[in-house]
Design a protein around this nucleic acid. Structure first.
Lengths: 153, 153
DNA sequence: TTTCTTGCAAAGAGTTTGCAGCTTC
DNA sequence: GAAGCTGCAAACTCTTTGCAAGAAA
């Protein structure tokens, strides 16, 4: 089976770009941290571990490129930093996020959940939806458990 | 009937803050532009028209304060600027946005629409929701009409 | 007087850009 | 050798902060 990296390489080529060593290193870091929501700086530091010669600007340029090609999604949880999230392959839409206001953890929801809502919006607001961003802010299950434990003490 | 400004004044007092002339001018601008999604800079320029002596830092501090007191909501559409949106009075939750990728217009959806989705998330992900952000990116009705017209030419 | 608030300027954080040099085809 | 790509440093944008002066209780 063709690897994920290979497919991304093809996507780049189709769009007229090369998969340079720096770009590959960046993509690999993203692949190894699929569950996380890394900032450009985070990605930079991780890439640097294996390819110390890389520059921060290159990471930014690569992330911008990948965003353009819809290989990654750029998200912003309101803390002033952009974060980059690899799109699940074949995902028709962007997944949702649960941001914990206690511990800062970010969990993902891969399920769509918005089908009905989108149908309503398209019909009642006459808006042709291309993409969406849905983030819930609240308390994650870990912090809820922690609180319950503390109450019993 | 008590005015909106009066109620905000009380909210500030309750929290131990004063409604200074600068803060009042800032709030008035927000009230006069309830439908818009102004950046701090936008607010600053509008406040400056009537109160030229105000400083940008004061506007930032006031907006931060109002955000803290949940009088305004700070939102980020991914363009690198924070925008500030007066909460509808009595609104239990934050309203949603439709961002047009053609013309950049931002429309609001006051309807909740997420009740069912939130119930599922609370139950299946065991996440206690406190707030949410939902933004659709797509093509607004104005741009759709424009496109249709152009096709007929 | 004491506390809060302000304006200004400087600093800070995150991101983008100009450019000379290096690869790659 | 033309085109694309990179690293570095400088520039830029948005936002926050330190501080002395001002306003309010």
């Amino acid at each position: 089976m063709e690897s994920r990296i290979e497919r991304i390489k093809k996507q780049l080529h189709t769009a007229g770009y090369k998969l340079t060593p720096q770009r590959e290193a960046t993509v690999r870091v993203l692949l190894e941290h699929e569950e996380d929501h890394l900032s450009a700086e985070d990605v930079y530091l991780l890439v640097k571990e294996k390819s110390p010669e890389i520059g921060l600007a290159t990471v930014y340029r690569t992330l911008e490129l990948l965003t353009e090609l819809k290989i990654v999604d750029k998200i912003n949880f309101g803390d002033g930093v952009s974060r980059y999230d690899l799109r699940k392959e074949g995902a028709a839409h962007f997944h949702h996020h649960l941001v914990c206001i206690e511990c800062g953890a970010v969990d993902e929801i891969q399920e769509d959940l918005l089908e009905d809502v989108e149908a309503i919006v398209e019909r009642d607001w006459n808006f042709k939806i291309k993409d969406h961003r849905l983030t819930f802010h609240g308390i994650c299950y870990r912090c809820q458990e922690k609180e319950q434990k503390e109450e019993h003490e």
